[in-house]
Amino acid sequence: MKRIYVNEQWCLGCHLCEYNCAFANTNSENKCRENDMAKALKNKVINPRIRIEEKDDIHFAVSCRHCEDPLCVKGCIAGALSIVDGVINIDQDKCVGCYTCILSCPYGAIMPADSGSVIQKCELCTKNSCGEPACVKGCPNNAIVFEER
């Protein structure tokens, strides 16, 4: 299955993936249309599902790895996390906000949604109109790729 892979060697730490992620997952009607990023994100504190980890000259993006045997799904007490065609999905209607998944994810790739009462995570842009994940599409240096390995 195609997954998002990051390559530290080419990551510039520009953080554009975070903004592309936040933009792709806004509720703006015109999401994924580049012209509207200013409208969608102006004066907003973004809460992206991909995050740059960095120290000094080292940068790389971290997002859900869609593990084959995911601890988050195993630990979910509400049945909100499930695997659909290899993609780990979150059903926010079922999520009770216990944060067990956040604590159990070894990669720190799950985080609370803006409301704080449910969680959010990368779902490979399957639930928005982006098609290919927005972080991959917008990465200026091929540091984030979407491929079969």
């Binding site: 510039l12 520009c14 953080h15 554009l16 903004y19 994100l41 907003k44």
Partner: peptide, 14 residues
């Protein structure tokens, strides 16, 4: 300034 969202990519890349 209407379009700048303060992502600071320009700052990081210059």
């Amino acid at each position: 300034t209407d379009r700048c969202i303060g992502c600071r990519a320009c700052e990081r890349q210059c």
